[in-house]
């Protein structure tokens, strides 16, 4: 690196693109960010952000196991995330209303146990594959180094498929997200739609994990989408904004990670959290100034009324 990070954007971009691994990181990051922004927006509307996090954590033993067996980590991520999504949707619905003694919640106890067990399994696989200590950090907290052409291709295929399925699912999905009861009454197969969405979420979480690491998917999957819901009430605008913010966070994060000694996991989480806080603050100020109508907008209503998480 001769010049380092400066305000001459052309020079910065020229420096970035002179390394093949960085070109691949930007390609992969862009694909992942577009998918994460789109799926993440619907996930936030459906209040399933912790399902996305759980699926990403389930992906960690998959990736570690795949590396141990000598396979591409991407197959492990996608395989375990999609399998996890299918299992979660097949489980009998946990009775959330029926809180038992005190504040006991079966859901949070089960999620805590499953996540801890998945992390312990991943640790075992990492231990079985000797000399993989740096790999452990990369799997948990993300990396921009070592993304191969083949991985970019796999991400591109998975991402395109994911977006095509999302478009095909679009209207019934949005309908059953915003008003599940009316949608069910109108004959929308809400259970099937929600299973299909969880599988898409699994693919998005698996892809995002490959950039941000399994533990930090919130940075791309939740933060841009949550910021978008604070800034606009229209679903189409929100979706576009969410995708744009996710791409911005990824590009900036990868650039900073390239020019600094600090890893991408730190940069994307910091940028994501900052954008989310800025959007929340902006919303607070405009709300106080009375610029927004008091009637709740559809996504907001979905946020406050929906009982499914």
């Amino acid at each position: 690196m001769t010049a380092g990070l400066n305000w001459n954007l052309v020079d910065v971009i020229r420096q970035l693109l002179s390394f093949h691994f960085m070109v691949n990181a930007l390609r992969a990051g862009t694909i992942v960010a577009v998918v994460a922004g789109a799926i993440g927006y619907l996930m936030v509307l459906r209040r399933q952000s912790f399902a996305g996090h759980t699926l990403a954590v389930i992906g960690f033993p998959g990736a570690a196991g795949a590396t141990w067996l000598g396979l591409d980590a991407a197959f492990g991520y996608f395989g375990f995330c999609v399998a996890g999504a299918l299992i979660i949707s097949a489980l009998p619905g946990v009775d959330r209303r029926n809180a038992g003694l005190g504040g006991f919640s079966e859901e949070s106890a089960a999620i805590g146990t499953v996540q801890a067990f998945a992390l312990a399994c991943g640790f075992l696989f990492v231990g079985l594959y000797h000399g993989f200590l740096n790999g452990l950090n990369n799997l948990l907290f993300g990396t921009i180094i070592g993304i191969t052409d083949q991985q970019v291709l796999v991400l591109l295929i998975a991402g395109t498929g994911c977006l095509v399925a999302l478009v095909a699912l679009g209207r019934p999905l949005l309908f059953s997200t915003i008003d599940p009861d009316v949608a069910r009454a109108r004959g929308v197969p809400t259970r099937l739609v929600s299973t299909a969405f969880l599988v898409l979420l699994g693919i998005a979480a698996g892809g995002t994990s490959q950039i941000t690491g399994s533990l930090l998917v919130f940075a791309l999957l939740v933060a841009p989408a949550a910021a978008a819901t604070r800034l606009t009430a229209q679903p189409a605008v929100g979706l576009a904004l969410s995708i744009a913010l996710a791409v911005l966070i990824t590009w900036m994060g990868e650039t900073f990670a390239f020019f600094s000694p600090y890893p991408i996991g730190f940069w994307v989480t910091t940028l994501g959290f900052a954008i989310f806080l800025l959007a929340t603050a902006y919303r607070g100020i405009t709300d106080r100034a009375g610029r927004h109508p008091t009637i709740p907008s559809p996504p907001q209503r979905a946020l406050s009324e929906s009982t499914t998480r």
Binding site: V44, R47, S49, F50, H53, F141, L215, L216, V217, F218, A219, V222, A223, A226, G265, F266, W267, V268, T269, T270, G272, F273, F276, T280, R309
Partner: peptide, 14 residues
């Protein structure tokens, strides 16, 4: 939970 989740991710990032 969105705020909590984002804050937790950021703390891990730190």
């Amino acid at each position: 939970d969105v705020i909590i989740g984002n804050a937790m991710a950021w703390i891990l990032g730190l």
